[in-house]
Amino acid sequence: MLRYSLQKILSLIPVLAGISLIAFLLGVVSPGDPAEIALSRGGMSEATREQVSAMRREMGLDLPLPVQYARWLGNALKGDLGKSFSTGEPVGQALARRLPVTLRLAAYAMLLTCFFGILFGILSAAYKDRTVDLCIRGAASVILSLPGFWLAILMILIFAENLRWLPTSGVGGAKSMLMPAVTLSVATMATAARLTRSALLTEMGKQYCLAANARGIGKYRLVVRNALPNAIVPVVTLLGNYFGGILGGSVIAETIFALPGIGSYAVQAIYMRDYPALQGYVLITGLIYVIITLVIDILSLVLNPKIRLGGGA
């Protein structure tokens, strides 16, 4: 198991190198001269030719690309991601300030998805073709076909405007995270419930569940204790990918609910053509995604004793 984990970690190094290269190239291939953009501060002033070439030397843009990449990567490893074109604030600092907001949002969304997604999946499978199952399946279909932003606006209307239970925007306690987290999680909750249901039903049709049933056990033991440990593996993979996806998907929720996370930072950076900020965003989300994939790989390993004990593939 340790060897497998080490192998996984080692195999991540080229992936990380690839992500950093793409993030770096983003700054190179983007239109416009970074020196000029940095000097013009979003079109406020026009720089002279001498000023631009001096700036290019200062920023190291006159060096060959591989050297630039090595420098950039070296700085990035030290936590220096350059300065934002638009605000002049170091990108690393801005991301460090905003990342906790997004991670908190992601954690709330993840919690909701795991709990309700798996719970509804279990209920749906345990009461297959009964009223509970039909309701859950119906609700899942409806939710899957609703766009997230529409749901967000609807929720603001109901819970913030009319009922005044929840704040419309901003960062506060758990209350302020509820609507954004729900917006982010409902679709995946429905997918997770469906996947849990179908995986459970597949497992319950297998011989070992028949044999377990012949031991005179109740429904809870059959579904949760026998079928679930086998059915959960694909669900964990789905949820892991989703957690990585939140970091990209949080853009909508952060924009609608005015949360100062990295998603809204990226949106601003795109508006302002703030390439250092975008590079930093790409690098950090890539890094987080890769780490989560690693955690999920190891987690599904732990869940599957066959691999854990080296007994099989």
Binding site: K206, Q207, Y208, C209, L210, A211, A212, N213, A214, R215, G216, I217, G218, R225, N226, P229, N230, L303, N304, P305, K306
Partner: peptide, 24 residues
């Protein structure tokens, strides 16, 4: 029926390798 299974009649199922739960 639940009591009957197990205490009234015990099953020795076919296909031993498929009749045990590999996660338990």
């Amino acid at each position: 029926l639940r009591i009957f299974r197990g205490r009234g009649i015990g099953l020795i199922p076919q296909n031993p390798s498929e009749s045990l739960n590999s996660a338990r």
